[in-house]
Design a binder for these strands. Structure first.
Lengths: 226, 226
DNA sequence: AGGTTGTGTCATAGAACTGTGACATGCCAC
DNA sequence: GTGGCATGTCACAGTTCTATGACACAACCT
């Protein structure tokens, strides 16, 4: 049974102790804090595998802690709230939370959520997608065309990943500029086109008649499997 | 490609055949049964490496099969269910399942889960891993290259172990700084690079053309066996 | 203290990448 | 067909990134 290092932030001492005990019983190793500030101070040195944050906290609230964690890295976050207010859920998930649990919560359910998220995080790390001959490994950042490995430069790879993230969707140049480049570039340059062309030259068997990245005149580009 | 002996238990013949075919295509060797009783009868003689059990089975259900398997040994178990009911998940994980997959499942996703679990099981079982000529003993904290013992300094060893913990994955500098150092350092330092070079100088037969630790420009480093 | 080892920082060279703009080509409406 | 726009193509110089070795300093040992 796997054991996770859990960072717990909850200001109510009785709830904190209860959760800590319950999670410890489930075999997790738990470090808990009463405030977001303390948690953020220690998050780098403790390097937990998942964070469980109460939304209502004195000082920095859970949602804000979540945002700041997200700025640091991909650490999975579960938010805890006393009421199942719909607006809260939206705000929480927008802040990048992976899950949202309403108190009081059954320890077993919380444990199951934790494990589910950790599993998801783990499998996301090594997941591959294939579109016909084209295989993209997001974990290894490798692109294969048939048996051959394709070398893409960082920008080309980011562009391809962005397109692939929305298969079948037309993405316009402005969107791509923001997603792949810093927004510091002018919108009317040939930048996106040039990069698309470079990617095509590498992954399209016949770049003049693209199979993967299609031009949608007047709108942008669309990735769609052959 | 590693091949696993998979025990598959699924009562619906069409699903069973489809999964068996898909897993076989992925390079696994599969033995399948329609009922838990049959599976349990044969589990000792077949000695599979992993079991995939449908939860809904006539007679003994998948969760119960899982419990009985657990009583026998540490065989990893994946449970298959038609819907992602929370209660089911809890019960399944409590019964000792290693993973829980909701049908219908993409064959490559199932394959990824299988491999993840087998990797976990394997590395938990032994402290030593070998990648080609390189052998890493995590128990004794020793690294051998062929017949020769390689002396790595503590930091170098932590770096190598961190890379090896995620074989095939690209780890960025920020991540490595946190994982290997205590992140008392600025994000844009060349510290990681310098340490990677030192490790390469010791373990790579030809440091200029690394076989183990690969640079992924713009992203980070990737450990992948030759 | 003196020597040894480990570690972080820096400068630098060379390699790789990328934005840019000029121009070519293609597409569509009229 | 023709004009007007949208997109494709290309070369190259400036920029960014990485490898490498030197070095300073701290920690450690004798």
């Amino acid at each position: 049974m796997r054991v996770a290092g859990i960072l717990l932030v909850e200001d109510d001492p009785s709830v904190r102790t209860a959760l800590e005990l319950a999670l410890t019983r489930q075999g997790h190793s738990v470090t808990s804090y009463a405030t977001g500030e303390e948690a953020l101070d220690h998050i780098r040195s403790r390097r937990p595998e998942i964070a469980i944050l109460d939304v209502m906290l004195p000082g920095i609230d859970g949602v804000e802690v979540c945002r700041r964690i997200r700025r640091l890295d991909q650490l999975p976050v579960i938010l805890l709230t006393a009421r199942g207010d719909d607006l809260d859920v939206v705000v929480g998930l927008e802040a990048g939370a992976d899950d949202y649990v309403v108190k009081p919560v059954e320890p077993r359910v919380l444990d199951a959520r934790i494990r589910a998220i950790l599993r998801r995080a783990e499998s996301a790390a090594s997941d591959r997608i294939a579109f016909g001959d084209l295989m993209i490994d997001r974990g290894a950042l490798k692109v294969m065309l048939g048996e051959k490995e394709i070398h893409l430069t960082p920008t080309e790879l980011r562009l391809l990943l962005e397109l692939v993230r929305h298969p079948g969707q037309v993405l316009n140049r402005r969107y791509l500029l923001r997603a792949v480049w810093d927004h510091t570039h002018v919108a009317d340059s040939r930048l996106v086109d040039a990069c698309v062309q470079r990617v095509r030259a590498k992954i399209e068997p016949r770049p003049a008649e693209p199979v993967f990245i299609h031009t949608v005149r007047g709108f942008g580009y669309r990735f769609s499997p052959p």
